[in-house]
Amino acid sequence: MNIAWKEMKKNKARFLILGSIVFLVSLLTLIISGLANGLSQDNAALIKDLPDGQFYMTKDSDQTYTLSKIDSNTQDKVLDKEKDAAAFSIQMGFVNDSADKQQSVVFVTSTESELFENVKKGEIVLDNSMKDKGIKVGDVLTNNQYSGEFTVKGFVDQKKFSHAPVAFINMEDYKEMYRTNEMQMLFVPGEDSPQAIDGLQAFSKKEFLDTIPSYSAEQMSLNMIVWFLVVISGMLFAIFFYMMNVQKIGLYGILKAIGVKTSALFKMMWTQMLFITVIALSLSIALSQVFNKFAPEGMPFHLTPDTTVKLSIVFLIIGFIGATLSGMQIKKVEPLQAIQQGEV
């Protein structure tokens, strides 16, 4: 007989309260996690969407990509050797639209590569979010550092850097605007371990993202909130089950006296924990997915199935640990003590 289920059926309110708390905490965790992912995408989708590989910048740039300048000889050598590699540069800037309104963008240029948008001289390819600013294909944009005009050739999905939309431009135009002949970085896709290149320092994707000043601080804060919530939910489980177990000490003692195994009492508690967590998580996942779909325009919210599954597993593990720790009392319960305490 499933006594765990019988107890939940009889004491609906008690378990509903615990379930609601788990639901609210897990929903909050998923929402914050979605925002963390969204902000992360908003901050560095350009880099995050690249395949795994190694980034190289000059050693003397002190891990600051804007200060890195890769000399053309080194660049040519690497690009000759690695056919899929690309040299690229990123610079914050702005464009003026046809109404002469300034729009912040991040100019990105690269050598010919499948990894970046290849654009001809005088052309520009923008992130989709620029459509919301009223910019259309064929529009003419200007920049005070550029002698010519940019014609909008198209739009790309989710290409953002440092919370600004990316604008892909031709390398020649970039060189004119920023008065440089050197690219800031080299990217070699598919490399697990870095190569030793004279004067260059290698970074994995994660290491490179961490060099972006706003990215690491922002992600660290949000991740800390997410993990705090996870730990808090584990503690909630432990406290709630502890309180329930304290109330049930007498009952556990009697059940032990009549011969119920301690393992059966643990199973009862785990079943209840699993049932509550699965229901609460299912509801919070469903609601967070609704939020994912109907999040207000412009809100950087991005909750992937991968993150959802990972967090759900963590919640189940934390709930299990919390309940088990509190259940240690069950092991200590002496039947005799419970009998002497009086009516359950």
Binding site: I254, G259, V260, V344
Partner: peptide, 21 residues
Amino acid sequence: RKIRANKFGFVFQFAHLVPFL
């Protein structure tokens, strides 16, 4: 425990029934 479960029966001062059954 096995002997208690299979061969013994208990009646205490209080009934000690399981409240949710």
